[in-house]
Design a protein around this nucleic acid. Structure first.
Length: 890
RNA sequence: GCGCGCUUAGCUCAGUGGUAGAGCGCUUGCUUCACACGCAAGAAGUCAGAGGUUCGAACCCUCUAGCGCGCACCA
């Protein structure tokens, strides 16, 4: 057994063990194993990503589950991988190219650009994998997958073809969310609403057959007036009922447009008149459809005005054009007023610019198996933890819309659709599904084929790629080969953030149910996972989300350097409640580190008293040993409940309390009597209990703090082999006669605390021994006298039920009886101190007496004191002591 | 507008029908033979507010207020 160093050094210990685990292939899953399976697929981080605290929390939890399962003798597969993150990666590489080489992707062209992405990825990508290793994640790295792996990419394409054949994927010209910065379509989920301050402009539209009379229309977007092809009112709105069917003049460019009646209009809003701009608003588009209005698009893909008929606005950015349009209207006397107005505007989640509703030719997916997917969650075939996310999931599924899956980016899975022109009627240069989707492009003049390989000469492939989530939704099973799937699918648990419940969790459920990768066709064999645990979202001290731009996100690697991976993991887990946000404070990580040190030191203390043994017999148990073993049993129960309910903070807190308080502060301190005893059998018994509990502790703690526990397991020689495969501790059977002694232990501990309190109040310094007397009728207390003396740091504890004390002796009542602090006042020594304190004591007395009214504290009957609660009794004792001091002096 | 959370010590949060808890911070004492990343003691709370159920409510129910989140609306 090697000697334990003075302090624990995670910097050397942690990498040492990680390397050893890797070398031993300890994390690799065997699909042929006869053990029961346990599997998790890692939510694949972006290849461009670096480790955040969110990842730390998420992956620590997965690691805890994986390590716990390994200890329980299960065959564990924790499958890691990465996501190609189409838009995100493309943007990152474009930025890099712009900065370093001053070129855009268009300068390079598609093929060369993609080549550069691959090069960039080799150089800068995948950092996060190394970081996860430093955190101690026990993933099967031999099975690491990537959404751009050839086989995975093929599966994505096959799924596309399959769904197309089932008529679930279709191409259509519809209103989509357009990101003018990234210049691509987005799904509804990629749009976040933000309240924005702006103006509501009241614009005057002249009535055609009533010159000089105007209809006022309230709008927030005057820059789209040129695209108006009608105005609409509510059919029952009396103010405008006469105008329905007539025409008004569009202010610019001046043109006649119809007034229609439509139920979708809210008469309460603005003037109750809506300008209908079918090309630039979803609702307007629907109204336009109902009333057969024309569609005029006045915006370019990058969000500039495209309207040569109004040269003042043509070419302007959409926000500049808004101001300019208002000015133009005002100059023409067509702006009645503008008032401040707050409304929600959809922003691109990625680019953080307002999205533009846009009519565009895109690919869509009609979600399969939505009813079934809702049912498996409601019937708890899949369980959500915490449960309340079920409602969020249900609400989304009930309002589900078709998914726009095509993206106008180059980096990603290219859509397996092919086009061939039927004749020469289509003008050259306009791609059928490319980024330029001007209304009016004739798509009917071409043939479409959806298949993996090219149909032959003359066919050109769709330029677009698929939404990254369209590949991620297959992650639970396309990352596995046939044999692995047979053993490990459905996976046991999914650990992820609630922010991707729609993006990923729900869609994976659809995919599992639709593609049925399981060993039978039964639903329960095809769900992607049994349990879903939604982690907390980590915020900063002020409650803000962690973000790069705010700079409030600490680098986990820095934290690991400072506190160790184990300290970081434990500190974070201990404060991670389920289903609520975490407010992060580095202090909490420091506590994790301190806890590791505490464990290290108590182990060091044990090791100083000779070698540990894994199989020492527990016999001649002291009452303190019984107490700590009973508490260990309770801890094991509590931890089991914690794992069952995914309450990781509860597990961590329980371990913290048990180790620090029950084991270190009470048991080890009490056991020192035996450990330092001349009686070898008593010493042996105490050390055996220490070993037993220590062995249990490190095993219980191992999933949370894998490195230090392995180090201690090995250094102390607590068991054979790696702790990773050691069985978790089971509860020890304690006899009822033994358990009956717990009451006595509790009484002793209470008495010790009361006695320490007395000495503190009497101002006896911690390093001085104090003298006590214990008036108790408890039998068999003599055998505990030594330990009580030790715990009280006493020179002597007199056991005498009839002990007579002088008046004013500080006293406390406990379950054991009465404990008295015997102060031998050496007047000459104490005189000076008393002189100094006398004034303070007198002041205190006045306060006490005023609080008690006229009744003097000292006159209170002792019988009352016994009945007072402990808190007040302490005050009484304190004041009594002070009174006596004062009296003696006076 | 609909839905989901939250409100407990100065701070961050546990608790969940039966005497209000932890860590940090604060006060006091202590380098006592594992640990100052420590030990011991202490102060500190109208458990958001109002009703109700109950022998008993921080906990269960109803309402109110404030904060946060999701969805919808968003001319």
């Amino acid at each position: 057994m090697a000697e334990l160093s003075k302090t624990y050094d995670p910097k050397t210990v942690e990498p040492k063990w990680y390397q050893r685990w890797i070398d031993n292939h300890d994390f690799e899953a065997d699909a042929n194993s006869k053990k029961k399976p346990f599997s998790i697929v890692m939510p694949p981080p972006n290849i461009t990503g670096v480790l955040t605290l969110g990842h730390v929390l998420n992956n620590s939890i997965q690691d805890i589950l994986a390590r716990r399962a390994r200890m329980q003798g299960l065959e564990v597969l924790w499958l890691p991988g990465m996501d190609h993150a189409g838009i995100g990666t493309q943007t990152a590489v474009e930025k890099w190219l712009k900065k370093n080489e001053g070129v855009t992707r268009h300068d390079l062209g598609r093929e060369k650009f993609l080549q550069r992405v691959l090069e960039w990825q080799d150089k800068h990508g995948g950092i996060i994998i190394q970081q996860l290793k430093r955190l101690g994640c026990s993933c099967d790295w031999s099975r690491q997958r990537y959404t751009m792996d050839e086989s995975y990419a093929r599966a994505v394409a096959e799924v596309f073809v399959d769904l197309y054949k089932k008529d679930l994927i279709y191409r259509g010209r519809r209103m989509i969310n357009w990101d003018p910065a990234a210049q691509t379509a987005l799904s509804d989920e990629e749009v976040v609403n933000k309240p924005q301050r702006g103006n509501l402009y009241y614009v005057r539209y002249e009535i055609v057959d009533q010159p000089g009379k105007f209809l006022e229309v309230a709008t927030t977007r005057p820059e789209t007036i040129m695209a108006d092809t009608g105005v609409a009112v509510h059919p029952k709105d009396k103010r405008y009922v006469d105008l329905v069917g007539k025409e008004v003049w569009r202010p610019m460019p001046r043109e006649k447009i119809p007034v229609v009646a439509d139920d979708a209009i809210d008469p309460e809003f603005g003037t109750g008149v809506l300008k209908v701009t079918p090309a630039h608003d979803k609702l307007d588009f629907e109204i336009g459809q109902r009333h057969k209005m024309a569609v005029i698009d006045v915006l370019t893909p990058d969000g500039k005005i495209n309207c040569p008929a109004v040269p003042e606005l043509h070419g302007l950015d959409r926000f500049e054009a808004r101001k300019k349009a208002a000015e133009l209207l005002e100059a023409r006397g067509l702006l009645a007023k503008a008032e401040p107005h707050e409304n929600n505007v959809g922003f691109s989640d990625r680019s953080d610019v307002p999205i533009e509703p846009r009519l565009s030719e895109q690919w869509f997916l009609k979600y399969p198996k939505t009813k079934e997917a809702l049912a498996v969650v409601k019937r708890h075939i899949i369980r959500f933890y915490p449960k309340h996310w079920e409602k969020v999931y249900e609400q989304w599924i009930n309002n589900i819309q078709d998914w726009c899956i095509s993206r106008q980016v180059w980096w990603g899975h290219r859509i397996p659709a092919w086009y061939r022109r039927n004749s020469g009627t289509v003008e050259a240069g306009v791609s059928p599904a490319g980024k330029e989707k001007q209304p009016g492009t004739a798509a009917a003049t071409e043939e479409v084929r959806v298949q993996i390989g090219s149909p032959g000469e003359g066919w050109r492939r769709d330029d677009d790629t698929l939404d990254t989530w369209f590949s991620s939704w297959l992650w639970a099973f396309e990352t596995m080969d046939e044999k692995t799937r047979k053993k490990f699918y459905p996976t046991s648990a999914l650990v992820t953030g609630p922010d991707i419940i729609f993006f990923w969790v729900a869609r994976m459920i659809f995919a599992g149910l639709e593609f049925k990768p399981g060993k039978t066709k039964k639903i329960e064999d095809n769900i992607p996972f049994h349990d879903v645990f939604f982690t907390s979202i980590i915020r900063d001290k002020q409650g803000r989300k962690m973000s790069k731009s705010l700079g409030n996100s600490p680098d986990p690697l820095d934290l690991i350097d400072k506190y160790g991976a184990d300290g970081l993991r434990f500190g974070l887990l201990r404060i991670a409640p389920s289903g609520q946000d975490i407010r992060f404070d580095e202090k909490q990580i420091e506590e994790g580190r301190n806890f590791a040190t505490k464990l290290w030191n108590v182990s060091r203390f044990r090791q100083m008293h000779g070698p540990s043994s894994a199989e020492s017999k527990l016999e001649n148990l002291s009452i303190y040993a019984i107490e700590v073993l009973a508490r260990l049993n309770e801890t094991i129960d509590s931890i089991e409940r914690g794992y069952r309910d995914y309450e990781f903070n509860q597990i961590a807190q329980r371990l913290y309390d048990f180790i620090w308080s029950d084991y270190c502060d009470w048991f080890v301190e009490a056991a020192k009597t035996e450990i330092f005893s001349e009686d070898e059998s008593r010493k042996k018994s105490a050390l055996a209990v220490m070993d037993y509990v220590l062995s249990a502790i490190v095993r219980l703690l191992h999933p949370f703090m894998p490195h230090i526990t392995e180090e201690l397991w090995s250094l102390l020689g607590l068991g054979e082999g790696s702790i990773q495969f050691a069985t978790p501790p089971k509860k020890i059977a304690l006899k009822d006669v033994d358990l009956a002694k717990r009451k006595l232990v509790a009484a002793i501990y209470e008495t010790v605390q009361a006695g320490r309190n007395l000495r503190a109040l009497a101002k006896i310094p911690s390093n001085q021994k104090a003298k006590y007397a214990l008036r108790s009728n408890q039998k068999g207390l003599e055998s505990e006298q030594e330990t009580i003396t030790r715990l009280l740091n006493a020179s002597e504890v007199i056991l005498d039920p009839k002990f007579q004390s002088g008046a004013g002796t500080p006293i406390a009542t406990t379950a054991l009886g009465e404990i008295l602090l015997i102060v031998d006042v050496d007047l000459s020594a104490e005189r000076e101190r008393l002189d100094k304190e006398i004034a303070k004591v007198e002041a205190d007395l006045r306060i006490v007496e005023s609080k008690l009214g006229n009744k003097s504290f000292v006159d209170r009957a002792p019988r009352d004191v016994v009945e007072l609660n402990r808190h007040r009794q302490k005050n009484y004792t304190e004041q009594l002591a002070k009174l006596n001091e004062a009296r003696a002096k006076l």
